[in-house]
């Protein structure tokens, strides 16, 4: 998907419009109102790896972990799902830089990743097992579960209390998934995530222009006005 160049005026206009709408309605800024007022939903970038079930699962995870609020749009509007899809379809998903020769042993956590699965294979088996667990426990796949159940499942999953019946080790998959959500939120927009540099703006990271020799003193202990640019903006 061509990187939609950041259109400041459009962003400002929509921001102004949304705040005006909130004011006129006079209601507290409930999540739904915010969602509606937030920037129009970004057109889908399509999927090169995830099938419909998997895409729904990933969208639900990234939108739950990175909800929409005044700091940033929700995860899928920032393209974190697209980032994960492209990573899995690409070399990293196929096991680039991963030693994949047997024999295969479980080992202990301090010996790191030992599964005979490439990241793409782990996601495929992992999402199927996660959804199977959710259907067994909450009688619905993850993306159909209400927010409270999603949170309950994610907390259990991240703390090793979830076991995938004849699936991959649950926690190994969670650790990889969580790292990819973070990467999707803060890597350069080139990779499909961090669209409009929303992740960088949230924390004030100035992006690729980094000639700070003079700024060190000029901005010591002062807020640096970051209007981040990505690699594409300078290419």
């Amino acid at each position: 998907m061509k990187n939609v160049p950041f259109n400041r005026r459009a962003f400002l206009k929509s921001a102004v419009a949304s705040s005006a709408a909130a004011v006129s309605v006079g209601l507290p800024q409930s999540a739904q109102a915010q969602q509606k007022a937030a920037a129009p939903p970004t057109p889908s970038a399509g999927y090169a790896f995830l099938n419909p079930d998997e895409a729904a699962f990933i969208e639900a995870v990234v939108d739950h972990m990175v909800p929409a609020d005044e700091l940033s749009p929700k995860g899928s509007d920032m393209g974190i799902n697209t980032f994960i899809d492209r990573a899995l379809a690409g070399g990293w998903g196929k096991g680039d830089r991963l030693y994949m020769q047997g024999p295969w042993k479980q080992g202990v956590p301090s010996q790191g990743y030992q599964l005979p699965l490439t990241p793409a294979e782990l996601y495929r088996a992992g999402i199927a097992s996660a959804n199977a667990y959710c259907v067994k426990t909450y009688s619905k796949p993850f993306d159909k579960m209400p927010e409270t159940q999603r949170q309950e499942f994610l907390v259990a999953w991240s703390t090793g209390k979830v076991n995938f019946e004849n699936g991959p080790p649950a926690r190994v998959f969670f650790t990889m998934l969580y790292q990819n959500v973070i990467e999707g939120m803060f890597s350069d927009p080139l990779y499909g995530g961090n669209q409009n540099k929303a992740g960088w703006k949230m924390i004030g990271f100035p992006g690729v222009i980094a000639v700070n020799q003079q700024n060190i003193e000029k901005y010591r202990d002062k807020k640096f006005p970051a209007n981040p640019l990505g690699i594409a903006d300078m290419s």
């Binding site: 295969w104 479980q106 599964l115 005979p116 699965l117 004849n166 991959p168 080790p169």
Partner: peptide, 8 residues
């Protein structure tokens, strides 16, 4: 056989 999900 080996389960490729966990190497067991």
């Amino acid at each position: 056989y080996t389960s490729v999900l966990n190497g067991e």
